[in-house]
Design a protein around this nucleic acid. Sequence first.
DNA 1: TCACCATGCCAC
DNA 2: AAACGTGGCATGGTGA
Length: 509
Amino acid sequence: YDINILRRHSLNVSPPLFDTMVAAYLLNPESLSLTLKSVSRTYLSQTGRDYGEVIGEAEDFSHLDVTKAAEYSCEDSLSALNLKEKLLAELKNKELLEVFEKIEMPLLLVLSSMELKGVKIDTALLKEFSKELEERLKQLEKDIYREVGEEFNLNSPKQLAHILFDVLGIPTKGIKRTKTGISTDVSVLETLAPRYPVAEKLLQYRMLFKLKSTYVDALPKQVSPITGRLHTNFNQTIVATGRISSSDPNLQNIPLRTEDGKRIRKAFIAEEGNKLISADYSQIELRLLAHLSQDEQLIKAFKDRRDIHSETAREVLGIPKSTPLSEEDRRVGKTINYGIIYGMSGFRLARDLGVPVSVANEFIEQYFKKFPRVKEYFSSVKEAVKKKGYIETIFGRKRFLKYVKVEGKDAGFLRRVALNAPLQGSAADIIKLAMIQLQDCLTEKNLLSEAYLILQIHDELLLECAEAKVEEVLQVVKEIMENVVSLQVPLEVDVGVGRNWLETKEDRR
DNA sequence: TCACCATGCCAC
DNA sequence: AAACGTGGCATGGTGA
Ligand SMILES: Nc1nc2c(ncn2[C@H]2C[C@H](O)[C@@H](COP(=O)(O)OP(=O)(O)OP(=O)(O)O)O2)c(=O)[nH]1
Ligand SMILES: [Mn+2]
Ligand SMILES: [Mn+2]
């Protein structure tokens, strides 16, 4: 965060770096507040208050009482220095120094460059699309009001529930509940749709409204007037598993699933004369599961270059090898694979698939029978948490879980968290290392002015690249990502090139 | 006007 | 909310 303020003023920051927020994050990735003040309170037993608390009633820092301001600032300077020693010792103690020095500190510079570069979007295209959505939403709204016989606020789940279950009198037996009443979420509307055509319209309305409000209208507003591009924040100290998050705007959840959603991805474009390159790890957490569990069946599957997401999809949807599998169907397979390994219930699986619970339960049982070591691995995870109080990734990143909690009433939840963290976290470690190596490599080859990272989407890297350098960069990216670590199974990376982000996903070479 | 919670849904 | 996990953001609804 602060590094960008320095960089914006054209100051260079050079390694080795030490960032107190990042250090404190590694020591406790679940922690919500990692401000200098709160970290000092924890590790230096200081008593000072946060910026916001100090400001209090004053308008801003410059209006603050001089004594208070001086107090605050002196403490900050002292903190940064004293804290460094303390945190370093703690990192060593907990065997987190390697992750800190080899991954997080070098990554800080990479992320900062990515934020400064930003990504170009086609605002004209989005503005056009917005108008079209406006029309379609208006029509849907009219249709819905006509079908239910009255007007109400379609964006209020509470009012909608009232209309559906009180006014129309749709029976609520077996329908999902929220804390405050009856749910109207997509799974509910999908259940209603065959009997009540209005539900189909509501689903359509919900989807389009979501796309319009969250992306189509919001993104153009956030384009920087200075660079003409969209700059996200990559947050390095938020996600408890070690992933990075993206905010203001979040560019890690740009739509892809639906046809209308795809039109938004299409608006992420390369500068004239450039191309976008996308590189996405294939089945990454399943591969990591194969490695960590040592399951022979799973290891063999990946050595044979099989696609488990597709196989699962064909199996549950009953689609023969002779019929091509749609993207949508493969996504179903993916959801089932990750759902089952991370502890999904037969009930939920049954609901998602629209099959009887007995069938779903049977499927889950068969699944673990097919990969016998997976169950054993998960027992070992449980043991590790009990014994050590934390679980870790292949690079030693740790997530500390309270033993009392593991045994207590949130035991189920804690168990699933513990199952997920090593896999999601290892995937995060791997792509972070790849980003660092890639940046180094591009720098060395003097390519940075023609090829640079612009986004990271958990297991995918998006680069912008001069057309003339595409073939070379493609090779480098794939090579680095696939070989950043050597596991029991090969890591495979799907790469694609295009004028826009959607094309890179359709390209897949 | 703001913060907060709840619901819902986009992505990985 | 009936045992997939990790996020961020929009809206409505409420209260200060
Ligand atoms: N628990 C859970 N994790 C998910 C889910 N979707 C994605 N992930 C995690 C696990 C994936 O390995 C990782 C990257 O997502 P991707 O969409 O790239 O899927 P994946 O790499 O498995 O397959 P693919 O790239 O399509 O070959 O994010 C999900 O529905 N549940
Ligand atoms: Mn992937
Ligand atoms: Mn991906």
